Amino acid sequence: MMALDLSGDWALIDDPITISYESRLTENTYSAPAAVSYAQRNDVTKEDLDALSAFISKGLLQKDATVFHVWTAKLNGTVPAIKDRVTYAGEKWTVQIVGIRDRDANGPQRHRLVCSKFQG
């Protein structure tokens, strides 16, 4: 029986975006920005806002949070982590929750990043 291969699923998404991704190195230091193509942006859910309220003020509004989906194949070896930074359309976001959406025999293929507006 053949194992499921999801490594090329990034090519099937509609309206892909390119984001800038910076890995957090220390408290206030980030790696050089790397372009990540074939990402998707989605609205946050009520569950996302509830989960974020554990880290951020209870008054977090939907406009202060967003979700990015990124594929392992397009991350050039970067492993998404909490406190990393994403920039899209001039707005900076801090990764607060990293979830794995697609996993196959080769490991995680798509990550769901729940982000809040960057407070620099």
Rank of each mutant, 00 (worst) to 15 (best):
Met2Ser: 15
Ala3Met: 12
Ala3Gln: 12
Asp5Ile: 12
Asp5Ala: 07
Gly8Glu: 15
Trp10Ala: 02
Ala11Tyr: 04
Ala11Gln: 14
Asp15Met: 08
Pro16Asn: 04
Pro16Asp: 00
Ile19Thr: 07
Ile19Ala: 01
Ser20Lys: 10
Ser20Gln: 14
Glu22Leu: 09
Ser23Cys: 07
Thr26Gly: 03
Thr26Leu: 01
Glu27His: 02
Glu27Leu: 04
Asn28Thr: 11
Thr29Tyr: 06
Pro33Asp: 07
Pro33Glu: 13
Ala34Gln: 13
Val36Gln: 01
Val36Pro: 01
Ser37Met: 02
Tyr38Ala: 03
Ala39Trp: 00
Gln40Ile: 06
Lys46Gln: 09
Glu47Ile: 03
Glu47Pro: 00
Asp50Phe: 11
Asp50Asn: 10
Ala51Tyr: 02
Ala51Thr: 11
Leu52Asp: 06
Leu52Ala: 07
Ser53Gly: 15
Ser53Phe: 08
Ala54Leu: 15
Phe55Tyr: 15
Ile56Arg: 12
Ser57Phe: 14
Ser57Ala: 14
Ser57Pro: 11
Lys58Val: 15
Lys58Gln: 15
Lys58Tyr: 13
Leu61Pro: 03
Leu61Val: 13
Lys63Met: 12
Asp64Gly: 15
Ala65Pro: 11
Thr66Cys: 15
Phe68Trp: 10
His69Gly: 08
Ala73Leu: 00
Leu75Arg: 01
Asn76Thr: 05
Thr78Asp: 07
Thr78Ile: 11
Pro80Asp: 03
Pro80Ala: 01
Ala81Ile: 02
Ala81Met: 07
Asp84Gly: 00
Arg85Ala: 05
Val86Asp: 00
Gly90Cys: 13
Glu91Trp: 11
Glu91Ser: 14
Val95Pro: 01
Val95Ser: 04
Ile97Phe: 05
Ile97Asn: 05
Val98His: 03
Asp102Thr: 07
Arg103Pro: 01
Ala105Pro: 00
Ala105Asp: 10
Leu113Gln: 03
Cys115Met: 09
Cys115Ser: 06
Ser116Met: 11
Ser116Gly: 14
Phe118Met: 10
Gly120Leu: 08
